[in-house]
């Protein structure tokens, strides 16, 4: 190996390490409760219940994974399925994390957002994407609202806000089987959702969050723990979702408790 190439490799590794360290430093300095004030509170109780309209407010949320998308036009069914089928971290479809758990990911680098511009900073087409390693943290949070404002989760924690992927998971605890319920999700933007490991919704398109925008086929919430998992991907705009279970007449189902794991 030529000396000049070794030097280049060393510099590249140093750059990746610097980005990783910077990300971790940023995180460690943040008071989560203060940073997310107005949108979330850290979980302080053993369990929660859905709100009066059935919305699920308690979630484990992973810090966003960068996946630059300079436009929302790309979110077709195929694109959504393909890009939300990538393994971003081990056991992403089964993990039940605890607050503060860390996840190591390799993700596409994007430059810091330029808030003085009204256009996203697109990577020149001729350039190959650059990937960086990052360590991301799971946060156990109660939303202050019926919706989960992923965008403010990201900005509050000083993370990438546009072109990112959010993994979210929560546990629905039932005292007995609840049959023929449907997961009803409003989502900004594209998303996939699973109940007990079974995909129940794929939400494509340049969509915005409305209550009960998309409703799954009938599912059974079984006695005991049920795992509700969603992954949401945005482009150059807002990101948020709301989720609840409804019955065949559209009425909210509320007879369960919610825990983080």
């Amino acid at each position: 190996m030529k000396r000049s190439f070794r030097i280049l490799l060393l510099l590249a590794l140093m750059a990746v390490t610097a980005v990783q360290v910077q990300a971790q430093k940023k995180n460690s300095k943040i008071d989560v409760a203060e940073a997310l004030k107005g949108y979330f509170k850290p979980v302080t109780t053993p369990s929660a219940t859905p709100d009066a309209e059935g919305f699920i407010r308690r979630w484990m949320i992973l810090e966003p994974i960068s996946k630059p998308n300079p436009t929302n036009r790309v979110f077709t069914d195929s694109y959504t399925r393909e890009n939300l089928s990538v393994e971003y971290f081990p056991d992403q479809l089964t993990v039940l994390p605890k607050d503060g758990d860390k996840v190591k990911v390799t993700m596409e680098y994007q430059p810091p957002v330029n808030l003085s511009s009204n256009r996203p900073a697109a990577r020149p087409q001729q350039d190959q994407p650059k990937f960086v390693k990052a360590t991301l943290t799971w946060h156990a949070l109660d939303s202050d609202h019926f919706f989960v404002k992923l965008f403010r989760f990201a900005t509050g924690l000083d993370k990438d806000r546009y072109g990112v992927i959010f993994w979210t998971v929560t546990v629905i605890n039932c005292e007995e089987d609840i049959e023929n319920v449907r997961l009803a999700v409003g989502s900004n933007k594209a998303a996939r959702w699973w109940v007990n490991g079974e995909e129940v919704l794929l939400l494509a398109g340049d969509r915005h969050m409305g209550v009960d925008s998309a409703v799954s086929d009938r599912v059974t919430l079984k006695k005991g723990k049920n795992i509700l998992r969603g992954v949401t991907m945005n482009g150059p705009g807002m990101s948020e979702f709301c989720a609840r279970f409804i019955d065949d007449t559209g009425k909210p189902v509320t007879g369960y408790t919610i825990t983080c794991n």
């Binding site: 009803a184 009960d212 998309a214 409703v215 086929d217 409804i246 065949d248 007449t249 559209g250």
Partner: peptide, 18 residues
């Protein structure tokens, strides 16, 4: 339409635009 995007088969209810 129990959801905006989600047609299904369910009891008919004239009182509901669903």
């Amino acid at each position: 339409s129990l959801g905006d995007c989600s047609p299904t088969l369910a009891p008919f209810d004239f009182k509901s635009d669903n």
